[in-house]
Nucleic acid binder design. Structure first.
Lengths: 385, 385
DNA sequence: GGTTCTACCGGGAACGTTTGCGGTATCGTT
DNA sequence: AACGATACCGCAAACGTTCCCGGTAGAACC
């Protein structure tokens, strides 16, 4: 129950925007706007005196702050002695330059945005950390945004990145994103974007993906060569390019080996574990049951494996399964999963390196490139009988 | 080969500090300081014109920037029409407030530091992402720093955080950190710190750990109750409190069940996979071989398992093993590992929530708390015969 | 002794915000 | 008609930097 800051009443309060993360309220009676006082300036006031500035150094040494600034930057026309004195005083006062003030005047935030749909799976966290690492080496901080598979929050996240004045963004789209205005808005502000994994076809930006088509092709080919003949595919949301590419790899492998495509064997799943299980069960309970399933990813493969086990279907004897990603657990389940290795960390590093390259080269001067990392087939027990 | 920016010679160049992440050089002949030109101001200049400010909105509407600022904040004494006009113009110009300028005047960075030793294992990335998530919900960005198990870079990282004017830090120490001046310096600047996992005993800050002692005790007790009698322990670096606590749990469990402690059965390992294997082999090649090993973590347990397999030692018949952490793969190796579950994500969330609580309460007003999350025994095949 | 050059330093504007304080209409009241 | 209250808006300082421009001292030169 929020009370008005003035009349102390509750009844006429409405929310009125958010300022710097804090909810702002409006009292229709008093016509007054206010935020809750709690996290007010109290701790800040204390903090302030503790943080010295170049001005403090300057007055302590009785010189100007211009000189201090230059001394700290090792600028050429500063006497060695004064420079020494400044550095010592900075040390003594425990001075730390204020990055935000520097960024403001330099018009350079040293910040890069990372925009991903979710954190629940192993994939994105691992990639983010790898990307963050190369950003840090290049002197950049990162702002991490999670769109939670919602196009709306994705848009809001781009606003945050814009306000943070990020110098570039690496991004992976939501599965429901169909409007690209927010990404275009980055482009308009000359902020380079590199898409990875879930790329945006409509945008002419750099991209890094794994070779989804080839990976799926190899996986299905492997199943065929191991004698499986009725190969199903649990795929991904058709909106994602990677789903399409993997599906095409699946289809072309069948075509190549003259295996007729059965529509009923192709199921798109919505990337949730529940649905993966449902799809697997649906396939496995068919009268004309497939004898192999190629899954979109290892999460899906694992659910398929468990579904098969609970239906007393032997893997790999009665059912061959293979997936995509080579998640860390994939080698350790029983039987171990055949999969297409996706170099997660490497993707993150490559995307970040590309982006930093674009940033330093300048927005106008680079040609977008599409880096396709090879997809390697890793054969384990789940597909070999 | 760096050439002087002036004389174009190479011989008299020395490094002279770093400015905003870029190496600065000094030519002793020309007495000139310079940085490499590449990443210069060129792209920035383009970027500038594209980013509107409140001034742009003000001139477009022929009002003052104060009014614009207040309108954007939904301040009380702004006319509804002008406010509407401002918001529309902001929309039209694609305005985004500059967070750095706001931070500068508000003396509030809305940033939190995360300081961890490494990214190679599953543990820290998972925890970071979980912590970042709750920070984001509260309107904070994070700066992630990796000390790479080096006390020196840990210190340097704290400087970065200080310069970023972070409002708080969650941290996990390096295994070699013995000086705490850098953490004290955070304290001096009234920046709250919450340690997790690898806590700093010397500092009176909040802490969140898993109950290491109890976990180890339960694990060893479980081994004893399953008939193992010669139980070894591959522990961690003695410098870390968690190593000590787990060791004590191990010792007390033995004591409780009147099993004599054998010094030779206790090996500290340095957290690398190689060394884990070495320790396991050393134990398993003893004449008086232990019949069970309790490991510091599941990484170590896995190496121990593989060492046993390669020595043809049957697990769990000839050797019982158990570990700590419940890594995602632990359930899937063969045999599945008995382990002490460590709620990683929960630790990250708890630490971040505690920190934000401290920040909003104000530095002076909170009492440090020690949150000890329960350690749950997860029994699987590796320890049951 | 005047001139030029070099080495070094300071003043002050600028970056994009917020906000205290003061100002000016407008309106109702007496 | 004079007054105060109210509603709304602008001026300018401040946040902590960087950097252009100018200034001054001493040295070197003719």
């Amino acid at each position: 129950m929020i009370k008005c800051a003035q009349c102390k009443q509750v009844h006429a309060i409405t929310k009125a925007g958010i300022v710097r993360g804090r909810q702002r309220y409006h009292c229709k009676d008093c016509h007054v706007y206010f935020t809750l006082p709690e996290a007010a300036a109290a701790p800040v006031a204390e903090k302030q005196q503790a943080m010295p500035t170049i001005r403090d150094i300057a007055t302590a040494l009785n010189i100007s702050k211009s000189t201090v600034s230059r001394a700290l930057q090792a600028h050429s026309d500063i006497n060695a002695q004064t420079r020494k004195a400044v550095l010592e005083m900075a040390q003594k006062l425990n001075y730390h330059p204020n990055y935000m003030a520097q960024s403001l005047v330099n018009k350079k935030s040293n910040t890069i945005g990372i925009l991903v749909p979710e954190f629940v799976n192993y994939y994105f966290p691992a990639l983010i950390i790898a990307a963050q690492e190369v950003a840090a080496e290049a002197g950049y901080n990162v702002i991490i945004c999670q769109s939670q598979e919602s196009a709306g929050t994705e848009k809001a996240n781009v606003d945050v990145l814009l306000s943070g004045r990020v110098e570039g963004v690496i991004a992976s789209m939501t599965k429901e994103t169909k409007q690209y205005d927010h990404f275009r808005s980055l482009e308009q502000h000359n902020i380079p974007v590199v898409f990875f994994n879930r790329i945006c076809e409509a945008m002419n930006t750099s991209r890094v993906t794994v070779n989804d088509y080839e990976g799926a092709y190899k996986g299905v080919e492997h199943l065929i060569k191991n004698g499986y003949k009725k190969i199903a595919h649990i795929g991904g949301p058709p909106s994602l390019l990677l789903s399409q590419n993997r599906l095409n790899g699946y289809l072309d492998a069948l075509k190549k080996y003259r295996i007729p495509v059965q529509e009923k064997y192709i199921l798109p799943y919505n990337l949730t574990g529940r649905h993966a299980t449902q799809c697997a069960q649906k396939l496995l309970k068919m009268r004309d049951r497939p004898d192999a399933i190629f899954c979109l990813n290892d999460i899906c493969t694992t659910h398929t494996l468990f579904a098969a086990k609970s239906l007393q279907i032997q893997v790999p004897q009665q059912l061959g399964i293979a997936g995509f990603s080579n998640n860390p657990f994939s080698a350790h389940v029983e039987p171990a999963l055949t999969t297409i290795e996706q170099p997660i960390q490497e993707m993150g590093r490559v995307a970040m390196r590309l982006l930093i390259d674009h940033i330093t080269k300048g927005f106008g001067k680079y040609k977008p490139v599409h880096r396709i990392l090879p997809a390697k087939l890793v054969v384990r027990q789940s597909s070999v009988r």
